[in-house]
Design a protein around this nucleic acid. Structure first.
Lengths: 331, 331
DNA sequence: TTGAAAGCGCTACCAT
DNA sequence: ATGGTAGCGCTTTCAA
């Protein structure tokens, strides 16, 4: 059995070898009940012998669907996106879809790449800072189902995100309870909608109390940016620093030591070992929700489409020692 | 401009609206120089107005290629796979390929999923513990280019991996130099080829010296498994524990405290904050290399194929305080 | 239960 | 420079 295939086998060759029509091959291989067991077996054997793999594109074209959907993210650095993508893949698989990924960071023309991707999928999930709203709107106006993830809503498009503002507010209030009054926010609100939301929450919390808020934008969201920002931060002489994410916070701690109260966002594994107070997000669930919503849209009768949905998934403050005087509460 | 598309526009409608043939539309939209600028503009306008997105599957079918390749991994938990996938995506993009991902963990039938995927791509990268060798061999015998990543070689198939054995040996020797003589390896060599290689290296190092090696398999590669194994570990009364990866090591430290010498593998961000001695792998480069090799195979003339390649990328021991008496060397 | 044939939406060759 | 048209490899009626 199993001879080496010189070039890709097609359904025609299988049909010929099995002595049936291509229609029968198609049926037999897809377990239609309109074939006798014997025929099916003969076809299977022929397919096996020729090492036949049906062409996905031919099938998609004939069926009028790609059986695939796409997810667009800026990057896969740090566990955040990876977890989201993993949750997405799992949920997509559950509804029989393959997943095409597209990282826009480092692309010369993200918009073009996304549009190209749009032609290869039945639906698209677009995350955070990847492409502009008008690109999203353009694709959505095509009729292609789109779900936005961790990103400001666009008219008529479903949006899933994690809670930022209210949890940031709770976090800031916790700091206030510690007696901190001079608080610096490290991170650029213009950098992503998530950061913007977190900053808003902090601002809201501090507005009501007599506390001072300073913004230091820094120049990125990674460890190095955190270290690099330490100088500027210390110049603001803060009691506490609320960082836009864990890596920033961790970098800051590396440079500024452990005396300064610092909080992060994301609850990386490293946060636990660094004793960093932070916020936990349901990352996998974000991805899974997006995939499920997309699937619902795809299966939806095209005439009577439901209104755009929005959901905010809950996030949770995780208190550790970095924010001040606690016994270690969480580990 | 930009009216809402009721259903997907096709090249025929664009042609009609622009008053040209579909051939001309195809040319105009793909920047062929066989169209006058005026025609091109007219076509572009029509396409824009109809919000036309070319069908990827139709194009693939006509061109005889998918312009996509796939990567199969067990999971995306922990930064390891995420980084690999990221490197892979970047390199694939550079050669004009989309990337289809497939996570096998939690699939009911990984082999079937991989075979299905094989029909949708021009080439496939298969990682570690995902599907059996005979599945790989079966797909390779189809003529589809395959690259193996972090996995034992299969006849006639390219393989890229990170160095395990010799680095593990160096790590073990470092421990010996510290005077440790009773060493326990935590991790199941049957669990993955990587773990097996690391165990081999440790074994080789200890064989030459008068040192005792105990194997504790544990039951996984995550933090919880590390914590759970602490009891069994302590029962072996080791001087030092070499863990199969960082998460295991970190879990063990959580449960056993910081007195015991412990090493990990992967150099997670958390390892740095936990002061964990570990091994750094070129994760992104692993993925990128696989993608590049795959692309080379795909572009290769099918008649005169080069022999299977194998490459082992260098890894590096990172000494921190967890292995014993050091001043902190690395951060 | 099986086969013949009409598409699916493109690309590319051959004419003009 | 443009149009006509033959595939690409499948799925799915419609007949037999």
């Amino acid at each position: 059995m199993a001879m080496k295939a010189l070039s890709k086998a097609t359904i025609y060759q299988v049909a010929q070898l099995a002595g049936v029509s291509i229609a029968t091959v198609s049926r037999a291989l897809r377990d239609s009940d309109l074939v006798t067991p014997e025929t099916r077996e003969r076809v299977r054997a022929a397919a096996e012998q020729l090492r036949f793999t049906p062409s996905g594109s031919a099938r998609s074209l004939a069926e009028g669907r790609h059986a695939a959907n796409g997810i667009v993210f800026p990057d896969l650095v740090g566990p955040y996106y990876a977890e989201v993508v993993l949750g997405y893949e799992a949920a997509a698989a559950a509804s029989g879809s393959s997943v095409l990924i597209l990282a826009t960071n480092g692309r010369r023309d993200p918009a073009a790449a996304v549009k190209e991707l749009a032609g290869r999928v039945d639906g698209l999930t677009v995350m955070g800072r990847t492409v502009d709203d008008d690109v999203v709107a353009g694709i959505a106006s095509t009729g292609l189902p789109v779900v936005l993830l961790a990103r400001d809503p666009v008219d008529g498009v479903d949006t899933v995100r994690a809670g930022n503002t209210s949890t940031a507010r709770a976090l800031a209030e916790h700091l206030l309870e510690h007696g901190h009054r001079d608080i610096t926010f490290l991170g650029d609100p213009d950098d992503s909608p998530d950061v913007a939301g977190r900053y808003e929450g902090v601002k809201a919390a501090l507005k009501t109390r007599r506390a001072r808020l300073t913004l230091v934008r820094g120049n990125g969201l990674d460890l190095d940016s955190g270290e690099a920002a330490a100088g500027d931060i210390m110049r603001t002489r803060p009691d506490a620093v609320i960082c836009a994410n864990d890596e920033l916070a961790l970098g800051l701690r590396l440079a500024a030591g452990e005396d300064l109260a610092v909080t992060g966002w994301d609850d990386l594994l490293a946060a636990r070992f660094a004793g960093l107070t932070t916020v936990r997000q349901p990352m996998r669930e974000l991805g899974a929700t997006a995939a499920r919503w997309l699937h619902r849209r795809i299966s939806e009768p095209p005439n009577q489409r439901a209104a755009a949905r929005r959901r905010i998934l809950a996030t949770e403050v995780v208190i550790r020692r970095s924010c001040g005087v606690h016994e270690e509460v969480h580990r």
